[in-house]
């Protein structure tokens, strides 16, 4: 494991752990953004440039801003009056620790610890475009349909109800 991987992994873990444990919701979203940028750096180290840049564009540029707007509109911004963690926080954390233990045991016992690293695959955006148009054309159309439905659905769900005039 190289130094760059350790730095990016530390950044990601710090950001996401802070996101799930800070009291102020806006601080949580900002540290989540740091964690997501760390993940994008990891994607770039793995050689998936397109996915890394798309991750920054979509998550940092859209989802984080959407979450921040939602926090502002539900008036949860600022120091919260009620406690930040729910009453059942102990059982929740215990479940998460058990899940991590099971996953870690499965990973370390199932995969052979081999040092043979395959060469870096060279993927260009042309190949991704070709794949999207030929092999993955049907999922592309379905995603278009799904995004349209989500767009219309989100607007309708969040629209304030029309007040009836007396």
């Amino acid at each position: 494991m190289t130094l760059f991987f350790l730095i990016a992994a530390a950044l990601t873990i710090a950001g996401t752990a802070a996101a799930m444990s800070l009291r102020n919701p806006i601080h949580c979203i900002l540290s989540l953004t740091l964690g997501l940028v760390g993940l994008a750096v990891l994607y770039l180290q793995l050689g998936a440039q397109f996915v890394g840049f798309t991750q920054v564009l979509v998550y940092v540029g859209a989802v984080a801003i959407l979450a921040v707007f939602a926090i502002m509109m539900t008036r949860s911004a600022g120091s919260p009056q009620q406690p930040a963690f729910s009453r059942s926080w102990l059982s929740g954390s215990a479940v998460a620790v058990v899940v991590f233990a099971v996953l870690a045991w499965a990973i370390s016992s199932a995969l052979p610890s081999t040092k043979i690293v395959p060469p870096q695959p060279a993927v260009s955006v042309n190949q991704i475009g070709d794949a999207l148009m030929h092999k993955f054309a049907l999922p592309l159309e379905i995603i278009g349909l799904l995004l349209t439905a989500a767009l219309i659905g989100a607007v309708i769900v969040a629209m304030p109800e029309r007040r009836e005039t007396p």
Binding site: L30, F53, V56, L57, V60, G61, I65, V68, S124
Partner: peptide, 22 residues
């Protein structure tokens, strides 16, 4: 000379909005 240069430009440009909100 990034293979996805224009996408990198727009990805970085979208971080400006977060800075403005902050």
């Amino acid at each position: 000379n990034l293979n996805a240069g224009v996408l990198f430009f727009f990805a970085v440009g979208s971080m400006v909005e977060l800075a403005v909100f902050m």
